[in-house]
């Protein structure tokens, strides 16, 4: 079940150690992203790409 959040939710989750994933194309990510966000464009989002991420940790996408 995916939960929709606003920026306050994002800030709170960041403090709790959530991983932030920017799923926009690399060019858009490079031009400006939320501090600490990792870039994982939607078309590259597969098992191999997320292999290093902990499944039990909260993850926020935008």
């Amino acid at each position: 079940m995916v939960t929709n959040i606003d920026r306050y939710g994002l800030m709170a989750l960041t403090e709790m150690g959530a991983v932030i994933l920017d799923v926009l194309p690399e060019r858009e990510y490079s031009s400006g992203h939320i501090p600490g966000a990792l870039n994982l464009p939607l078309r590259k989002l597969n098992t191999a790409a997320v292999a290093d991420l902990e499944r039990s940790k909260p993850v926020v996408v935008y």
Partner: peptide
């Protein structure tokens, strides 16, 4: 992933 959140309004 067990806890997935979507910051819908984004950047």
């Amino acid at each position: 992933f067990q806890q997935v959140y979507d910051y819908t309004l984004g950047i």
